[in-house]
């Protein structure tokens, strides 16, 4: 009797197994989820608008940047509302690895050449490796190539140099919203006036809010902490849109800063939003793949 019961029991078990075979197969192959998931596309460009974002050019990608700030819109018809007076920067950035990128560029303002490095120190992630924020370091050296104002006196090459150092801390809060804080230290070897400070500290705050799949509203503000500079100059405020189309990112914005690089727009912004010193500007960046990923190399 026991044997019969046992046999029936076994048969029953076997038949129930059969019933849900497809589902079981699905359960058997398990979860495809990776151990650590990293946040991606915190920002769509290596810049929020004017300032740096935590993003780097992808590994092996070269980005060609065209950055343009027109003159302020309030200067009237004679200068065609700023279209005659513009600052332009042409630049290149390259992702050497997933975490290291370098850049060079030249800006028409003070005929400045700059070279930069950006290092991803930490990536926002969940899972085995858990981090609430992404952190990057950005360092830049700028060289003004203007003719000396007074060629008679002894001029030092080092006087042409200024530097920017930033720690960029960002979090992608949702797929539509990312925020960033950017503590900044700027050093100028030589300043124009005795009241100008050689060392300027500032903190930037910026964000991106997606309006549609390919358009986002970007806002960026740099608050100057150094007392004297804060008194003599204005904080930089930029409001704009990011528009993505395939290999390009277009950034269109309004800003009170004429300068494009950190050494210019953070400590030397003179425009006031309330007076209408508003510059229209845009960045166009184009990606080129120089080094293909493993799967695509012949």
């Amino acid at each position: 009797m026991k044997t019969i019961v046992a046999t029936l029991l076994l048969l029953f078990c076997a038949s129930t197994l059969r019933l849900t075979a497809q589902d079981n197969l699905m359960d058997m192959i398990g979860d495809t989820k990776p151990a650590t998931e990293y946040a991606y596309a915190t920002f769509k460009s290596t810049r929020i608008s004017l300032g740096q974002s935590v993003e780097n050019p992808p590994n092996g990608n070269l980005i060609f940047d065209v950055q343009h700030h027109f003159g302020p819109g309030n200067i009237g018809f004679n200068d065609f509302f700023g279209l005659d007076q513009a600052t332009t920067r042409l630049g290149l950035q390259y992702g050497i690895t997933d975490w290291l990128a370098v850049g060079v560029g030249r800006s028409t303002l003070e005929k400045t050449v700059n070279g930069s490095v950006k290092i991803k120190l930490l990536r926002q992630s969940t899972g085995e490796a858990n981090s609430p924020v992404s952190i990057s370091y950005f360092g830049d050296a700028a060289l003004s190539t203007l003719k000396w104002a007074d060629p008679v006196r002894t001029n030092y090459f080092s006087s042409r140099l200024s530097f920017a150092n930033q720690v960029l801390i960002a979090r992608k809060l949702s797929k539509a919203l990312s925020l960033q804080l950017s503590p900044t230290y700027i050093h100028r070897n030589l300043v124009e006036k005795s009241t100008d400070e050689n060392d300027v500290f500032a903190v930037g705050a910026g964000g991106r809010a997606k309006l549609s799949k390919r358009i986002s509203l970007n806002v960026e503000y740099y608050y100057v902490l150094s007392a004297q500079t804060a008194k003599d100059y204005d904080n930089s405020l930029t409001v704009g849109l990011d528009i993505e189309t395939g290999g390009h990112v277009f950034q269109l914005f309004f800003t009170n800063s004429q300068g494009i690089i950190e050494e210019h727009f953070i400590p030397k912004t003179t425009g006031k939003w309330l007076n209408g010193d508003i510059h229209f500007g845009f960045n166009i960046s184009r990606n080129f793949v120089l080094k293909k990923p493993k799967e695509f190399r012949d």
Partner: peptide, 28 residues
């Protein structure tokens, strides 16, 4: 990294794939 299984008795066949692990030539 495709997970897949086949039951040769019943003929059941399944696969499952993580979208984020698709790799493209262009990172963008």
């Amino acid at each position: 990294q495709v997970n897949s299984a086949l039951d040769i008795k019943s003929g059941d066949f399944v696969f499952k794939v993580l979208m984020k692990s698709f790799s493209f030539e262009k990172a963008l």
